[in-house]
Design a protein around this nucleic acid. Sequence first.
DNA 1: GTCTATAGGTGGATAGAC
DNA 2: GTCTATCCACCTATAGAC
Lengths: 201, 201
Amino acid sequence: MDTANPGNTAQQILNAAERLVQMHGFNGFSYADIAQEVGITKASLHYHFSTKAELGRSLIARYQDNFCAALAAIDAEDADAADKLRDYVRLYAKVLRDKRMCLCGMLAAEFITLPQPMKAGVKKFFDANEHWLSQTLEQGRKAKQLHFAASATDVARTLIDSLEGAMLVARSYGSAARFLATADWLLAELGVGTAAKTRRA
Amino acid sequence: MDTANPGNTAQQILNAAERLVQMHGFNGFSYADIAQEVGITKASLHYHFSTKAELGRSLIARYQDNFCAALAAIDAEDADAADKLRDYVRLYAKVLRDKRMCLCGMLAAEFITLPQPMKAGVKKFFDANEHWLSQTLEQGRKAKQLHFAASATDVARTLIDSLEGAMLVARSYGSAARFLATADWLLAELGVGTAAKTRRA
DNA sequence: GTCTATAGGTGGATAGAC
DNA sequence: GTCTATCCACCTATAGAC
Protein backbone atom coordinates (compact mmCIF):
# COMPACT_ATOMS: atom_id res chain seq x y z
CA MET A 1 0.00 0.00 0.00
CA ASP A 2 2.97 2.33 0.51
CA THR A 3 4.67 3.13 -2.75
CA ALA A 4 7.42 5.15 -1.13
CA ASN A 5 8.42 2.55 1.45
CA PRO A 6 11.78 1.23 0.24
CA GLY A 7 11.60 -1.90 2.38
CA ASN A 8 8.50 -3.32 0.84
CA THR A 9 9.94 -4.75 -2.34
CA ALA A 10 7.11 -7.13 -3.18
CA GLN A 11 4.64 -4.25 -3.27
CA GLN A 12 6.99 -2.17 -5.40
CA ILE A 13 7.25 -5.06 -7.85
CA LEU A 14 3.49 -5.38 -7.95
CA ASN A 15 3.13 -1.64 -8.50
CA ALA A 16 5.53 -1.69 -11.43
CA ALA A 17 4.04 -4.85 -12.91
CA GLU A 18 0.52 -3.51 -12.56
CA ARG A 19 1.39 -0.33 -14.42
CA LEU A 20 3.18 -2.30 -17.14
CA VAL A 21 0.30 -4.74 -17.67
CA GLN A 22 -2.25 -1.93 -17.76
CA MET A 23 -0.17 -0.04 -20.30
CA HIS A 24 1.39 -2.78 -22.47
CA GLY A 25 -0.44 -5.99 -21.62
CA PHE A 26 0.76 -9.17 -19.93
CA ASN A 27 2.56 -10.26 -23.11
CA GLY A 28 3.96 -6.77 -23.62
CA PHE A 29 6.43 -6.50 -20.75
CA SER A 30 9.29 -8.53 -19.30
CA TYR A 31 11.04 -9.12 -16.00
CA ALA A 32 13.76 -6.82 -17.30
CA ASP A 33 11.26 -3.95 -17.46
CA ILE A 34 10.21 -4.45 -13.85
CA ALA A 35 13.79 -4.89 -12.69
CA GLN A 36 14.78 -1.57 -14.18
CA GLU A 37 11.82 0.26 -12.69
CA VAL A 38 12.23 -1.19 -9.20
CA GLY A 39 16.02 -1.02 -9.26
CA ILE A 40 16.91 -4.65 -8.64
CA THR A 41 18.05 -7.46 -10.93
CA LYS A 42 15.85 -9.87 -12.84
CA ALA A 43 17.09 -12.73 -10.67
CA SER A 44 15.91 -11.01 -7.51
CA LEU A 45 12.38 -10.80 -8.85
CA HIS A 46 12.14 -14.57 -8.80
CA TYR A 47 12.69 -14.55 -5.04
CA HIS A 48 9.42 -12.65 -4.59
CA PHE A 49 7.43 -14.18 -7.45
CA SER A 50 8.78 -17.50 -8.64
CA THR A 51 7.25 -17.32 -12.11
CA LYS A 52 5.61 -14.70 -14.30
CA ALA A 53 2.34 -16.63 -14.04
CA GLU A 54 2.52 -16.41 -10.24
CA LEU A 55 3.21 -12.69 -10.46
CA GLY A 56 0.19 -12.31 -12.73
CA ARG A 57 -2.01 -14.22 -10.32
CA SER A 58 -0.92 -12.04 -7.38
CA LEU A 59 -1.49 -8.95 -9.48
CA ILE A 60 -5.13 -9.79 -10.15
CA ALA A 61 -5.76 -10.76 -6.54
CA ARG A 62 -4.48 -7.44 -5.23
CA TYR A 63 -6.35 -5.51 -7.93
CA GLN A 64 -9.58 -7.25 -7.03
CA ASP A 65 -9.06 -6.56 -3.31
CA ASN A 66 -8.43 -2.88 -3.92
CA PHE A 67 -11.40 -2.65 -6.25
CA CYS A 68 -13.77 -4.31 -3.83
CA ALA A 69 -12.54 -1.98 -1.10
CA ALA A 70 -13.32 0.97 -3.36
CA LEU A 71 -16.83 -0.36 -3.93
CA ALA A 72 -17.31 -0.75 -0.18
CA ALA A 73 -16.16 2.84 0.26
CA ILE A 74 -18.77 3.98 -2.24
CA ASP A 75 -21.46 2.10 -0.37
CA ALA A 76 -20.31 3.73 2.85
CA GLU A 77 -20.33 7.22 1.36
CA ASP A 78 -23.40 7.27 -0.86
CA ALA A 79 -26.91 6.28 0.12
CA ASP A 80 -28.23 7.06 -3.32
CA ALA A 81 -28.04 4.52 -6.19
CA ALA A 82 -27.49 7.28 -8.74
CA ASP A 83 -24.61 8.70 -6.72
CA LYS A 84 -23.13 5.23 -6.44
CA LEU A 85 -23.18 4.76 -10.19
CA ARG A 86 -21.58 8.13 -10.77
CA ASP A 87 -18.80 7.22 -8.34
CA TYR A 88 -18.44 3.84 -10.02
CA VAL A 89 -17.77 5.60 -13.31
CA ARG A 90 -15.27 7.88 -11.56
CA LEU A 91 -13.40 4.77 -10.46
CA TYR A 92 -12.88 3.84 -14.11
CA ALA A 93 -12.10 7.40 -15.12
CA LYS A 94 -9.37 7.58 -12.49
CA VAL A 95 -7.61 4.56 -14.02
CA LEU A 96 -7.84 6.07 -17.49
CA ARG A 97 -6.39 9.37 -16.29
CA ASP A 98 -3.00 7.67 -15.95
CA LYS A 99 -3.45 6.42 -19.52
CA ARG A 100 -3.96 2.94 -18.15
CA MET A 101 -6.47 0.32 -19.19
CA CYS A 102 -8.43 -1.58 -16.54
CA LEU A 103 -6.13 -4.45 -15.54
CA CYS A 104 -8.75 -7.10 -16.16
CA GLY A 105 -10.00 -5.45 -19.34
CA MET A 106 -6.47 -5.66 -20.69
CA LEU A 107 -6.16 -9.28 -19.59
CA ALA A 108 -9.51 -10.05 -21.19
CA ALA A 109 -8.00 -9.15 -24.55
CA GLU A 110 -5.13 -11.57 -23.97
CA PHE A 111 -7.41 -14.10 -22.28
CA ILE A 112 -6.63 -17.12 -24.47
CA THR A 113 -2.90 -16.78 -23.85
CA LEU A 114 -3.17 -16.54 -20.04
CA PRO A 115 -2.28 -19.33 -17.59
CA GLN A 116 -5.38 -20.89 -16.06
CA PRO A 117 -5.21 -19.25 -12.59
CA MET A 118 -5.16 -15.83 -14.22
CA LYS A 119 -8.17 -16.68 -16.37
CA ALA A 120 -10.16 -17.57 -13.27
CA GLY A 121 -9.07 -14.32 -11.59
CA VAL A 122 -10.24 -12.19 -14.50
CA LYS A 123 -13.69 -13.77 -14.47
CA LYS A 124 -13.93 -13.33 -10.71
CA PHE A 125 -13.26 -9.63 -11.15
CA PHE A 126 -16.06 -9.21 -13.68
CA ASP A 127 -18.37 -11.31 -11.51
CA ALA A 128 -17.71 -9.03 -8.54
CA ASN A 129 -18.48 -5.99 -10.66
CA GLU A 130 -21.68 -7.59 -11.89
CA HIS A 131 -22.77 -8.45 -8.37
CA TRP A 132 -22.25 -4.96 -6.99
CA LEU A 133 -23.85 -3.28 -9.99
CA SER A 134 -26.87 -5.58 -9.94
CA GLN A 135 -27.55 -4.76 -6.32
CA THR A 136 -27.08 -1.06 -6.89
CA LEU A 137 -29.32 -1.07 -9.95
CA GLU A 138 -32.04 -2.98 -8.12
CA GLN A 139 -31.82 -0.57 -5.23
CA GLY A 140 -32.25 2.37 -7.59
CA ARG A 141 -35.16 0.78 -9.37
CA LYS A 142 -37.00 0.09 -6.14
CA ALA A 143 -36.48 3.70 -5.12
CA LYS A 144 -37.93 4.72 -8.51
CA GLN A 145 -34.73 6.60 -9.19
CA LEU A 146 -33.42 4.35 -11.96
CA HIS A 147 -35.50 3.17 -14.88
CA PHE A 148 -34.80 0.14 -17.05
CA ALA A 149 -36.87 -2.66 -18.53
CA ALA A 150 -34.35 -5.53 -18.62
CA SER A 151 -33.13 -7.52 -15.63
CA ALA A 152 -30.67 -5.81 -13.28
CA THR A 153 -28.12 -8.48 -14.19
CA ASP A 154 -28.40 -7.78 -17.90
CA VAL A 155 -28.05 -4.05 -17.37
CA ALA A 156 -25.09 -4.63 -15.06
CA ARG A 157 -23.39 -6.67 -17.75
CA THR A 158 -24.08 -4.01 -20.35
CA LEU A 159 -22.53 -1.38 -18.11
CA ILE A 160 -19.40 -3.46 -17.53
CA ASP A 161 -19.04 -4.30 -21.22
CA SER A 162 -19.60 -0.73 -22.34
CA LEU A 163 -17.35 0.95 -19.78
CA GLU A 164 -14.54 -1.50 -20.49
CA GLY A 165 -14.95 -0.87 -24.20
CA ALA A 166 -15.05 2.87 -23.70
CA MET A 167 -11.71 2.67 -21.88
CA LEU A 168 -10.29 0.44 -24.58
CA VAL A 169 -11.14 2.74 -27.46
CA ALA A 170 -10.48 5.98 -25.56
CA ARG A 171 -6.83 4.97 -25.11
CA SER A 172 -6.33 4.83 -28.89
CA TYR A 173 -7.42 8.43 -29.09
CA GLY A 174 -5.67 9.49 -25.88
CA SER A 175 -9.01 10.99 -24.92
CA ALA A 176 -10.51 10.62 -21.47
CA ALA A 177 -13.31 12.90 -22.66
CA ARG A 178 -14.45 10.25 -25.09
CA PHE A 179 -14.75 7.76 -22.26
CA LEU A 180 -16.76 10.20 -20.17
CA ALA A 181 -19.14 10.94 -23.04
CA THR A 182 -20.01 7.27 -23.41
CA ALA A 183 -20.31 6.82 -19.64
CA ASP A 184 -22.66 9.80 -19.42
CA TRP A 185 -24.83 8.44 -22.23
CA LEU A 186 -25.13 5.08 -20.49
CA LEU A 187 -26.07 6.60 -17.15
CA ALA A 188 -28.50 8.96 -18.82
CA GLU A 189 -30.30 6.00 -20.36
CA LEU A 190 -30.88 4.71 -16.83
CA GLY A 191 -32.18 8.07 -15.68
CA VAL A 192 -29.01 9.23 -13.97
CA GLY A 193 -28.18 12.85 -14.68
CA THR A 194 -24.59 13.74 -15.49
CA ALA A 195 -24.43 16.87 -13.29
CA ALA A 196 -22.98 16.85 -9.79
CA LYS A 197 -24.28 14.49 -7.15
CA THR A 198 -27.85 14.84 -6.01
CA ARG A 199 -27.74 16.66 -2.74
CA ARG A 200 -30.49 16.53 -0.19
CA ALA A 201 -29.01 19.58 1.62
CA MET B 1 -9.76 -13.65 -51.00
CA ASP B 2 -9.32 -17.35 -51.82
CA THR B 3 -8.22 -19.31 -48.78
CA ALA B 4 -7.88 -22.57 -50.69
CA ASN B 5 -5.74 -21.22 -53.51
CA PRO B 6 -2.28 -22.68 -52.89
CA GLY B 7 -0.57 -20.14 -55.09
CA ASN B 8 -1.60 -17.07 -53.20
CA THR B 9 0.84 -17.24 -50.33
CA ALA B 10 0.61 -13.62 -49.25
CA GLN B 11 -3.11 -13.97 -48.64
CA GLN B 12 -2.60 -17.21 -46.74
CA ILE B 13 -0.06 -15.47 -44.54
CA LEU B 14 -2.47 -12.62 -43.90
CA ASN B 15 -5.26 -15.08 -43.09
CA ALA B 16 -3.11 -16.89 -40.55
CA ALA B 17 -1.74 -13.69 -39.06
CA GLU B 18 -5.20 -12.15 -38.83
CA ARG B 19 -6.54 -15.12 -36.92
CA LEU B 20 -3.52 -15.13 -34.60
CA VAL B 21 -3.77 -11.43 -33.81
CA GLN B 22 -7.50 -11.65 -33.20
CA MET B 23 -7.01 -14.61 -30.86
CA HIS B 24 -3.68 -13.85 -29.11
CA GLY B 25 -2.85 -10.24 -29.85
CA PHE B 26 -0.04 -8.72 -31.89
CA ASN B 27 2.45 -9.38 -29.08
CA GLY B 28 1.09 -12.89 -28.58
CA PHE B 29 2.22 -14.64 -31.75
CA SER B 30 5.43 -15.08 -33.73
CA TYR B 31 6.59 -15.70 -37.27
CA ALA B 32 7.07 -19.33 -36.24
CA ASP B 33 3.32 -19.64 -35.57
CA ILE B 34 2.44 -18.33 -39.02
CA ALA B 35 5.11 -20.44 -40.70
CA GLN B 36 3.68 -23.60 -39.19
CA GLU B 37 0.12 -22.74 -40.12
CA VAL B 38 0.93 -21.79 -43.71
CA GLY B 39 3.48 -24.55 -44.18
CA ILE B 40 6.55 -22.54 -45.16
CA THR B 41 9.63 -21.48 -43.20
CA LYS B 42 10.02 -18.34 -41.12
CA ALA B 43 12.57 -17.02 -43.58
CA SER B 44 10.11 -17.25 -46.46
CA LEU B 45 7.68 -15.02 -44.63
CA HIS B 46 10.12 -12.14 -44.88
CA TYR B 47 9.97 -12.34 -48.65
CA HIS B 48 6.27 -11.39 -48.51
CA PHE B 49 6.35 -9.07 -45.50
CA SER B 50 9.78 -7.70 -44.70
CA THR B 51 9.08 -6.97 -41.03
CA LYS B 52 6.43 -7.82 -38.49
CA ALA B 53 5.44 -4.16 -38.38
CA GLU B 54 4.87 -4.22 -42.14
CA LEU B 55 2.77 -7.37 -41.81
CA GLY B 56 0.72 -5.66 -39.11
CA ARG B 57 0.18 -2.61 -41.30
CA SER B 58 -1.01 -4.75 -44.22
CA LEU B 59 -3.25 -6.67 -41.88
CA ILE B 60 -5.11 -3.58 -40.75
CA ALA B 61 -5.39 -2.24 -44.29
CA ARG B 62 -7.00 -5.45 -45.57
CA TYR B 63 -9.26 -5.67 -42.53
CA GLN B 64 -10.45 -2.12 -43.07
CA ASP B 65 -11.08 -2.75 -46.78
CA ASN B 66 -13.13 -5.86 -46.06
CA PHE B 67 -15.04 -4.10 -43.32
CA CYS B 68 -15.90 -1.12 -45.48
CA ALA B 69 -17.04 -3.50 -48.21
CA ALA B 70 -19.32 -5.19 -45.70
CA LEU B 71 -20.77 -1.82 -44.72
CA ALA B 72 -21.38 -0.99 -48.37
CA ALA B 73 -23.12 -4.34 -48.77
CA ILE B 74 -25.40 -3.48 -45.86
CA ASP B 75 -26.24 -0.14 -47.45
CA ALA B 76 -27.02 -1.93 -50.69
CA GLU B 77 -29.25 -4.49 -49.03
CA ASP B 78 -31.12 -2.50 -46.38
CA ALA B 79 -33.04 0.71 -46.93
CA ASP B 80 -34.01 0.88 -43.31
CA ALA B 81 -31.72 2.41 -40.64
CA ALA B 82 -32.91 -0.09 -38.03
CA ASP B 83 -32.15 -3.00 -40.35
CA LYS B 84 -28.71 -1.55 -41.04
CA LEU B 85 -27.92 -1.37 -37.35
CA ARG B 86 -29.07 -4.94 -36.82
CA ASP B 87 -26.83 -6.10 -39.65
CA TYR B 88 -23.98 -4.04 -38.24
CA VAL B 89 -24.28 -5.93 -34.97
CA ARG B 90 -24.37 -9.20 -36.90
CA LEU B 91 -21.03 -8.25 -38.45
CA TYR B 92 -19.51 -8.14 -34.97
CA ALA B 93 -21.30 -11.30 -33.87
CA LYS B 94 -19.87 -13.17 -36.84
CA VAL B 95 -16.32 -12.33 -35.75
CA LEU B 96 -17.04 -13.44 -32.22
CA ARG B 97 -18.49 -16.74 -33.38
CA ASP B 98 -14.98 -17.88 -34.31
CA LYS B 99 -13.92 -16.87 -30.78
CA ARG B 100 -12.03 -13.97 -32.28
CA MET B 101 -11.83 -10.39 -31.06
CA CYS B 102 -12.26 -7.52 -33.49
CA LEU B 103 -8.79 -7.02 -34.98
CA CYS B 104 -8.68 -3.33 -34.15
CA GLY B 105 -10.26 -3.81 -30.73
CA MET B 106 -7.44 -6.21 -29.92
CA LEU B 107 -4.86 -3.77 -31.27
CA ALA B 108 -6.46 -0.98 -29.24
CA ALA B 109 -5.55 -2.88 -26.08
CA GLU B 110 -1.92 -3.12 -27.22
CA PHE B 111 -2.00 0.37 -28.71
CA ILE B 112 0.97 1.85 -26.82
CA THR B 113 3.26 -0.97 -27.95
CA LEU B 114 2.37 -0.72 -31.66
CA PRO B 115 4.59 0.77 -34.38
CA GLN B 116 3.30 4.14 -35.53
CA PRO B 117 1.76 3.09 -38.89
CA MET B 118 -0.35 0.50 -37.08
CA LYS B 119 -1.55 3.08 -34.57
CA ALA B 120 -2.77 5.28 -37.40
CA GLY B 121 -4.51 2.32 -39.03
CA VAL B 122 -6.41 1.44 -35.87
CA LYS B 123 -7.72 4.97 -35.50
CA LYS B 124 -8.73 5.05 -39.16
CA PHE B 125 -10.79 1.91 -38.62
CA PHE B 126 -12.68 3.41 -35.70
CA ASP B 127 -13.15 6.64 -37.63
CA ALA B 128 -14.69 4.73 -40.54
CA ASN B 129 -17.07 2.97 -38.16
CA GLU B 130 -18.01 6.27 -36.60
CA HIS B 131 -18.67 7.86 -39.96
CA TRP B 132 -20.93 5.08 -41.21
CA LEU B 133 -22.82 4.83 -37.92
CA SER B 134 -23.33 8.57 -37.67
CA GLN B 135 -24.88 8.68 -41.11
CA THR B 136 -27.07 5.67 -40.41
CA LEU B 137 -28.20 7.07 -37.07
CA GLU B 138 -29.01 10.43 -38.62
CA GLN B 139 -30.97 8.72 -41.37
CA GLY B 140 -32.99 6.78 -38.81
CA ARG B 141 -33.66 9.85 -36.73
CA LYS B 142 -34.92 11.82 -39.70
CA ALA B 143 -37.24 8.93 -40.57
CA LYS B 144 -38.47 9.02 -36.96
CA GLN B 145 -37.45 5.43 -36.63
CA LEU B 146 -34.58 5.95 -34.20
CA HIS B 147 -34.80 8.09 -31.10
CA PHE B 148 -31.88 9.64 -29.22
CA ALA B 149 -31.19 12.99 -27.62
CA ALA B 150 -27.42 13.26 -28.05
CA SER B 151 -25.58 14.01 -31.29
CA ALA B 152 -25.38 11.22 -33.86
CA THR B 153 -21.60 11.28 -33.48
CA ASP B 154 -21.76 10.76 -29.73
CA VAL B 155 -24.20 7.89 -30.08
CA ALA B 156 -22.04 6.36 -32.81
CA ARG B 157 -19.04 6.49 -30.50
CA THR B 158 -21.03 4.92 -27.68
CA LEU B 159 -22.08 2.09 -29.97
CA ILE B 160 -18.51 1.42 -31.10
CA ASP B 161 -17.15 1.57 -27.55
CA SER B 162 -19.89 -0.65 -26.16
CA LEU B 163 -19.83 -3.28 -28.90
CA GLU B 164 -16.04 -3.53 -28.74
CA GLY B 165 -16.25 -3.90 -24.98
CA ALA B 166 -19.01 -6.48 -25.24
CA MET B 167 -16.79 -8.56 -27.53
CA LEU B 168 -13.85 -8.12 -25.18
CA VAL B 169 -15.66 -9.34 -22.09
CA ALA B 170 -17.71 -12.00 -23.86
CA ARG B 171 -14.51 -13.78 -24.88
CA SER B 172 -13.53 -14.25 -21.23
CA TYR B 173 -16.78 -16.08 -20.67
CA GLY B 174 -16.74 -17.88 -24.00
CA SER B 175 -20.25 -16.56 -24.42
CA ALA B 176 -21.55 -15.07 -27.64
CA ALA B 177 -24.94 -14.80 -25.92
CA ARG B 178 -23.54 -12.25 -23.53
CA PHE B 179 -22.41 -10.10 -26.44
CA LEU B 180 -25.82 -10.32 -28.08
CA ALA B 181 -27.61 -9.35 -24.86
CA THR B 182 -25.59 -6.16 -24.59
CA ALA B 183 -26.02 -5.41 -28.29
CA ASP B 184 -29.79 -5.88 -28.01
CA TRP B 185 -29.97 -3.56 -25.01
CA LEU B 186 -28.08 -0.84 -26.89
CA LEU B 187 -30.26 -1.09 -29.97
CA ALA B 188 -33.40 -1.18 -27.84
CA GLU B 189 -32.37 2.11 -26.24
CA LEU B 190 -32.36 3.64 -29.72
CA GLY B 191 -35.80 2.23 -30.48
CA VAL B 192 -34.61 -0.72 -32.55
CA GLY B 193 -36.45 -3.93 -31.73
CA THR B 194 -34.44 -7.09 -31.42
CA ALA B 195 -36.82 -9.30 -33.42
CA ALA B 196 -36.28 -10.12 -37.10
CA LYS B 197 -35.90 -7.40 -39.66
CA THR B 198 -38.78 -5.09 -40.29
CA ARG B 199 -40.48 -6.20 -43.47
CA ARG B 200 -42.64 -3.91 -45.51
CA ALA B 201 -44.55 -6.54 -47.43
C1' DG C 1 9.70 -18.03 -53.91
C1' DT C 2 11.38 -21.07 -50.85
C1' DC C 3 15.01 -23.17 -48.58
C1' DT C 4 19.19 -23.88 -44.87
C1' DA C 5 21.92 -21.71 -41.80
C1' DT C 6 22.85 -18.35 -38.74
C1' DA C 7 23.31 -13.94 -36.59
C1' DG C 8 22.27 -11.02 -32.61
C1' DG C 9 19.12 -10.13 -29.21
C1' DT C 10 15.81 -11.00 -25.46
C1' DG C 11 12.53 -14.14 -23.05
C1' DG C 12 11.85 -16.51 -18.32
C1' DA C 13 14.26 -19.11 -15.12
C1' DT C 14 18.14 -21.32 -12.12
C1' DA C 15 22.65 -22.03 -9.33
C1' DG C 16 25.30 -20.53 -5.99
C1' DA C 17 28.13 -16.74 -3.71
C1' DC C 18 27.47 -13.05 -0.44
C1' DG D 1 17.19 -10.64 -0.17
C1' DT D 2 20.09 -9.42 -3.61
C1' DC D 3 23.79 -10.26 -6.48
C1' DT D 4 26.71 -12.37 -10.79
C1' DA D 5 26.82 -15.62 -14.08
C1' DT D 6 24.72 -18.58 -16.99
C1' DC D 7 21.28 -21.69 -19.48
C1' DC D 8 18.38 -22.59 -23.17
C1' DA D 9 14.47 -21.60 -25.75
C1' DC D 10 12.66 -18.34 -28.61
C1' DC D 11 12.45 -13.94 -31.09
C1' DT D 12 12.93 -11.07 -35.59
C1' DA D 13 15.75 -10.63 -39.31
C1' DT D 14 19.49 -11.51 -42.91
C1' DA D 15 22.73 -13.99 -46.26
C1' DG D 16 23.09 -16.77 -49.85
C1' DA D 17 22.17 -21.35 -52.27
C1' DC D 18 18.69 -23.49 -55.17
